[in-house]
C-alpha cells in the first residue's frame, strides 16, 4: 500500500484543515507518501503569523458545529498544525505551497510556517503525485 495520497488544500478553515491533517497522519502511519499542495486560503492559514490562530469553520458548521469543535479542542484535541507535525515526523509527508497562490497572497517563503517544505507549480505537484489519487479539500 505504497500508493501516494495527494491532497490539494484550498479551504483555510480549521475544520477542513483538521480533516486533511487526520487523513495525512493515517496515510503516513501506513507508510504511504503524502504530497500536500497548498492553494488560496489554505496557504493563507500556513502563514507563520497565522497558523496558531483561529481560522473559523466551514459555513455548514453553524453555531452548533462551533460549539462541538470548541468542546473537542478544550478536551485536548491536537490542532491540525500539531497533527501535521506528528505526521511529518513519521516521514514521507511533503507540504508545498502553490506558486500562483504565493503571488496572489504576496507571500515569500519566509512568511510561511516551517511545516511548509517549499514552493512549486501545479505541474511539479502532478509529477510528484504520479498515478496516485488526488483529493481536493
Amino acid at each position: 500500500m505504497d500508493e501516494s495520497l495527494n491532497l490539494v488544500l484550498f479551504s483555510g478553515t480549521d475544520d477542513k484543515l483538521q480533516a486533511a491533517a487526520v487523513l495525512t497522519a493515517g496515510a503516513a502511519a501506513l507508510g504511504r507518501p503524502v504530497n500536500i499542495f497548498l492553494q488560496y486560503w489554505a496557504l493563507d492559514a500556513f502563514r507563520a503569523t497565522k497558523i496558531g490562530g483561529d481560522h473559523g469553520l466551514a459555513p455548514e458548521a453553524g453555531a452548533a458545529g462551533r460549539v462541538a469543535v470548541d468542546a473537542l479542542a478544550r478536551a485536548g484535541q491536537a490542532t491540525w498544525a500539531e497533527t501535521l507535525r506528528q505526521a511529518k515526523s513519521l516521514g514521507g509527508v511533503d507540504i508545498e505551497a502553490c506558486s500562483l497562490s504565493m503571488d496572489l497572497l504576496r507571500l515569500g517563503t519566509l512568511d510561511l510556517d516551517p511545516l511548509v517544505d517549499g514552493v512549486e507549480g501545479v505541474t511539479a505537484f502532478y509529477l510528484n503525485a504520479g498515478d496516485g489519487q488526488i483529493v481536493f479539500i
Binding site: 497522519a25 502511519a29 473537542l72 485536548g76 484535541q77 497533527t83 506528528q86 505526521a87 513519521l90
Partner: peptide, 12 residues
C-alpha cells in the same frame, strides 16, 4: 485524552 489518530502516532 488524545484523539484519533493521536494514540497511533504515539505508538509508532
Amino acid at each position: 485524552g488524545s484523539f484519533c489518530p493521536g494514540p497511533l502516532m504515539e505508538l509508532i
